[in-house]
Each structure stands twice: as C-alpha cells, then as structure tokens.
Design a protein around this nucleic acid. Structure first.
Lengths: 339, 339
DNA sequence: AATTGGCACTCACGACCAGCGAGTGCTACC
DNA sequence: GGTAGCACTCGCTGGTCGTGAGTGCCAATT
C-alpha cells in the first residue's frame, strides 16, 4: 500500500467532492480517475486516510468527505495554483483601472474578486499607520472650528473636526500648516507621533494650545488603527444554488458582519509565511465560520503589505482557483495604488 | 355586516400573522381579540376580505394571510406609529453621538437601525449635489499632478487626481484656490456648474488649461451623482431564525447588492408625500424583492432631505414599529449632521 | 505483502398510505 | 345580520418498506 497512491487518492477525493458536492465512494473514484487499481484497493487506502483523520464519512454507508485536516494537506502539498486566463487578467485590470478614487478602487477590487471566485470577497482599507503622509490640510470652518484633513500616499483621506477655545489667527494656522507638512510629508504615519512631539515648543506660547490640539487629534486618529475599515462583497453568493452549509447560513452572515472577527483573522493571517495564506474551517477559531475557509494575501507596499484582500467561501471550495484569483486581484490592486 | 368590523378583522389578521408567522383562522381570531362575534361571522367577513383581495389562503383548509394589498390598507389606514421608549431613544442618540467623522456617523446610524428593527438597514450617503461646499483644496502632488479635494457641509470628502500637461506655478494654483473658494463656498454643489462657467476667462491665457481642467473635474465629480454610495447593515438578520422567504433568500441578497436597484427605489420613494414612505412586496417592482418591504424616510436638510435612510424586511414585518425606528434614527442623524 | 473479487451488512432516502385536525363554505335557524 | 351545525378539503405527521450506494472483511490470487 504505497504512500504515494494514498495521497493521490486524497487529492482525487478532494477534487471530486469539490466538483460534485457529494460524498465520494470507491467506485466513482476509480471510474473518474485513472488510478489503475480496483475499488477494493481504494477502500483500503480510504480506511487508512480515515484512520489518519484526513477524510470522514457523514454516516455509515455513504462515501467519504475531506476533513479540515484533509483540505489542509491538499493545499499544502497536493495543489498547484492554476493561473488565470489572459482575458480574465485583462478584464480585472480594465475594471480596476477605471476607478476614480481610493473608495472606488477598493470597491471595484472587492467586487471583481467576488465575481471571479463566486464567493464572498473582503478588502481591508490601506492601513493608516503604514501609509505615508502626502499632505495635511488645515481648514478653518466658522469661528472656532478647524477641519484637519490627512491625505495619504495610498489616496486615503481622513478628516476630523476640532473645537477650539479661541479663534486662531490666519497667520498662525498658515505657519502651522507649513511646518506640519514640512515635517511630516513623506513619512509613515506611524512615525509621526515621535516627529510631532517637539513641535509645540517651536511656537510662541500663545499658539501652543492650538498646536497641541492639532497634534493630539492627529495622534488620536492614528490610535484608531483598531477601527480599520473593511469592505465586503458577494454575500449573495453564499445563498446561491445548493446551499453548502449544514446549518443555515445565518451564523456565517453574522460572523461576517462582525468587523472585529474579520480583522482579527486578517491580522493573524498577515503573519503566515506563505504569500497567499489559507485558513480552513475550524482554523478560523470562530463558531460561525467553522464551515468556511479564508484565502487572503497582502497588497500594496513592496516589502510588507499595507493591508489584505481575500476571499471567503465554504471549506468545500476550489482552493487552487481561489488562490489564483486572490493573488491576481491583489497584484493589480497594488499596481494601481503605486501608480 | 359592518364595514368597520371588517377593517377591524383585517387589522387583527395582520397583527396576529406578524406575530405568529402562521396563517390565522377564524377561531384563533375570536379567541385572541375581543371581537364580540362568533367564528362563523368572522368567516363571512374573511370571505369578503378575500373577495376584495386583501387576504388570501396559502391552500384550502388553511388560515388566511394578508396580501400586499392588505398590508397596504393596514399601513395607510389602520396603523398608528408606536413611539420608541425613552431608553431606546437615549441609546440611539448616545451611540450616534460618539461618531468621529461622516463615515462613522453613517456607519453607526445604519448599524443602530438594523439592531433596532432586527432587519436590514440602508443609508444613502448625503447627496453631493444637494450639499453645500465648505472648502475646496488644491494640493500639488509631485510635478504634474494636482489633487482636488472637495469638502461639503455634511462632512463628505471627495477627491480626484488630475494629470497635467505642464507643471503649474505655485502662484497660479494659489490664486485659483482662492478664487474657487471665494466663488463656491456656501453654495450647493448643484449650482456650481453655472458658477464656474465663466471662471477661465478671468485668468491669463497661460493658466487657462489648468483652470478648465480643474472645473471640468469638479463637474465630472458631480455628474457621478448616479454613483451615490449606499451602506447596508444587518443582512444577517434576514437569515436569522425561521426563514420568512418562501424561496431561498439568495435572490433577496442579490437584489440588495445591486446598488442600482436600491438607488432607484430610494429615489422613487423620495417623491412619496408621506414623511415615512413604505413600499410593500411587489410595489418594489423587483423580482427578488417581491417578498420584502421598504420603509424609508429622508434625513438632513430642513426642507428637502439630503438623502434617505430606511429599513428592509419581509412583507410580514411590524410596520408601526419599523416606521417609528426609521423616523427616530433619521431624526438623530439629521441632528448630528446639522450640529 | 499487496491486490482483488466476493459477499453480507448498514442505512439514508424516497414512495406510499392512513389518520388527524385545523379550517373552510354552506345551509338552516334565530 | 348573526349563529350553530355539518360535511368536506387537504396539508402534515408518522410508520412501513423497498432500493441502492457504499462499506468492511475475508479468502483467493499474483
């Protein structure tokens, strides 16, 4: 009973099950794949695979179904990413290229990915802290209010309103704006906190309250890193056709609405070494997502990514295809942001 | 057979059906409501109501269920909006008040509404054209690029990048910025197109290409009115508990992802005279939404609203409660935007 | 030692059927 | 007009049974 064939059988089971959505039995297996042995032999292999926890049967007298562990082995050792077709690639690029601003880029990326994979797609907005400052604008609004607008190199715009005790002079605001920009432009926002620390001292005592107020609100904005924004698309794909989830998909949708949950997962996955990270079923460590898998990768930024993009589907999904799509969209997304 | 009692019967049917989710029969009806007549009498009334198309029976020997027409009569003539409780009101206000910027306000509003109604909530971003200009900023980026940032009085920020043939001088950009703001600040964006028409003529010939480029991109941004952004929350509520939809909820989710569809509906409903507009079942004129109802109202702006907010649920929903929640959230939302 | 054919066994699934009961419409009566 | 009684309809529930895909095991084969 060769080890190689056993893995081959596992691959065959995964592929067939993904395609047919039905537990696969020994007969079907030999018919559809050129394994060169009889069903009985396969049955022995299957027994061994079940022993190892890679497959399971829903009930006696049914075929086998891959377990999370089985899928894991499959993506780690048995699958080869299948590249997208030329037209597909061009379509992605064309669609994303039409975007007019960052919101639009993100929106189009997530939609195109959902469309490609026929699953739920997720994009995390470019992280503020990892983006670089492109411009900081101070806009006086009315008498005692100041609008602080931060524009990053990824095109993200963040704004906060500041209530002031006294109306600042035009000149002071102008100087502050100039100094802030001189100091900060081009630097990663995460570095800003140290950069801004000594700024108040440069100004005359009168102006200091204003300066500290502004620097404080900038820092505060960055501290809200935890509140990173996330965008979903393709939720309808979950409900389409024969439903994949044993329980209803209520819990799944609920989990997807919990930004906290998604954020945790995306952050965790950022630490995986593989370029395209995969979480399968229970690996998500979340009740509602026990029957779903995540396929994500980073985008933007040459070394370390500025945020993540990915696809979410039933554990029973076409991993090679999904991984290819995610990688492709991430690539074009990065390109657009850099350009 | 009094007309009054017949309406009373209809109301009873709607209320019971909404509560129990089961077709309601004549016996149950007299037991749960003090109608003072016998089941047989009710049966006669029900026959009349069925004749009029207000109720229907799923199959012979089952109770009756309200039709779209029945619900319509109910919301138009039989229901009284039930006000929210004090604590509820305070909770809404407190939650929305915590928001730091427009995105956050919109996000919190839609989430609180979904939570209140236990349905899907939808908010339309404040319309650009109907907002007034608060500030327009021109930021040179690199050599030949100009970032155009428009900030409205509702806090919305819109930005576009402009590619230029020649690098503009600092002075020209400064003058253009000053003139644009002098001209446009405080005006509704919709009026801008006429206001900007003669601007290029004021400048020297050299600067004109720049000026027209900028005015053009501003106009272009406004023309994208059709691409208004929409935010949803609470989709998971559709799948929760005993499912209300006869077909699967796939089509519903699909329809909700079609921004175009939602936008059309919201715009149509803006023309209804009632302060809180209701679309029931087939009135949505959309296949996938045939079993859902929309309850929406405008927000922001004293006379005409700046955009809409609403709740989407099964036709079998608690209309009075939903209408109350929608109205309440819209009120606080308006207040925050105005403040 | 691995592979194979044969065989008894399990069990989900669909079809069929009968009894139950909620609900109706109709008619005769108050 | 309202009511009581009654025959009728029909979806739902639960039980029985046959079917077939699939398994595990064992003895025979290479």
């Amino acid at each position: 009973m060769s080890e190689d064939r056993r893995l081959e059988v596992l691959r065959a089971i995964v592929e067939d099950y993904v395609q047919t959505r039905e537990p696969v039995g020994s007969r079907m297996l030999v018919e559809r794949h050129a394994l060169g042995v009889s069903p009985a032999t396969i049955r022995n292999d299957m027994a061994a695979l079940e022993e190892g926890g890679y497959i399971a049967q829903p009930h006696t007298s049914a075929g086998r179904v891959p377990t999370d562990k089985g899928y894991r082995l499959f993506v780690d050792r048995l699958s080869t990413v299948k590249p997208l077709s030329g037209p597909e690639k061009r379509a992605i690029q064309a669609f994303i290229d039409e975007a007019v601003d960052l919101d639009d880029v993100v929106d189009r990326s997530v939609r195109v990915l959902a469309q490609l994979t026929q699953q739920v797609a997720v994009v995390q907005y470019p992280s503020l802290r990892r983006s670089a400052m492109r411009h900081l604008e101070l806009v006086p609004v009315g008498e005692r209010r100041l609008l602080v607008v931060i524009i990053t190199d990824t095109g993200r715009v963040e704004q906060r309103t500041l209530e002031l005790a006294t109306a600042p002079s035009e000149a002071v605001v102008g100087e502050l704006r100039a100094r802030l920009n001189a100091l900060a432009v081009g630097h990663r926002l995460a570095e800003l906190i140290t950069l801004l620390a000594h700024l108040p001292e440069v100004f005359e005592p009168d102006a200091r309250p204003l300066v500290t107020a502004v620097t404080e609100i900038v820092e505060e904005t960055l501290a809200q890193e935890s509140e990173e924004r996330i965008v979903l698309a393709g939720t309808a794909n979950l409900a389409r056709g024969p439903n994949d989830f044993t329980r209803s998909l209520g819990p799944v949708l609920e989990a997807l609405e919990e930004q906290v949950v998604l954020l945790r997962l995306l952050t965790e996955m950022a630490e995986d070494s593989a370029s395209v990270a995969v979480r399968i079923g229970h690996e998500t460590q979340h009740e509602g997502l026990a029957e779903t898998s995540f396929v994500t990768t980073g985008y933007g930024g040459d070394g370390d990514a500025v945020a993540r993009i990915g696809s979410i589907g039933p554990t029973r999904m076409d991993y090679p295809a999904t991984m290819a799509s995610v990688r492709a969209v991430a690539r074009y997304l990065s390109r657009v942001l850099a350009g």
